[in-house]
Computed example of a mutant assay.
Amino acid sequence: MGFAALPALAQDAPEDTATPPAAKAPEPQRSKTDAAATATLAALLPHLAGNDTIPLMDRSAMFAGDLSRLLSAYDASRSVASATDTALANDSDGKVQSILRRAMTLLGTPYRWGGTSPDAGFDCSGLVGYVFRTALGIELPRVSREMASQASNQLIRDRSALVAGDLVFFGRRGRVDHVGIYVGDGRFLHAPSTGKDVRTDTLLSGYWGDKFMQARRLDL
Rank of each mutant, 00 (worst) to 15 (best):
G2S: 14
F3D: 01
F3K: 07
P7F: 03
A8K: 14
A8Q: 14
D12H: 13
A13L: 14
P14M: 06
D16T: 03
T17G: 10
T17A: 14
T17M: 10
A18W: 14
A23M: 02
P26S: 08
Q29E: 15
R30K: 13
D34N: 12
A39R: 13
A39G: 11
T40P: 03
T40Q: 12
A42H: 00
L45M: 00
L45V: 04
L48P: 04
A49D: 07
N51S: 07
I54S: 00
I54L: 11
P55A: 00
M57N: 11
R59D: 01
F63G: 14
F63L: 15
A64G: 13
S68P: 03
L70H: 04
L71M: 15
S72K: 12
D75V: 10
A76M: 12
L88R: 13
D91C: 09
G94N: 13
K95E: 14
S98H: 13
I99A: 11
R102I: 10
M104W: 09
L106Y: 02
G108D: 04
T109K: 05
Y111E: 01
S117C: 03
G121Y: 06
G121V: 01
S125K: 03
G126L: 07
V128R: 06
G129H: 02
R133L: 11
T134V: 11
G137F: 04
L140D: 01
V143N: 10
V143W: 07
S144L: 02
E146C: 10
S149Q: 15
S152Y: 09
Q154F: 05
R157S: 06
S160G: 12
L162H: 00
G165Q: 06
L167R: 00
F169D: 00
G171F: 01
R173D: 15
R175A: 13
V176A: 02
G180S: 03
Y182T: 08
G184M: 04
D185Q: 14
L189E: 02
P192K: 01
T194R: 12
D197A: 12
T200R: 07
G206C: 03
W208A: 00
G209C: 05
K211A: 09
F212Y: 05
M213S: 09
Q214M: 14
A215K: 02
R217D: 10
L218M: 12
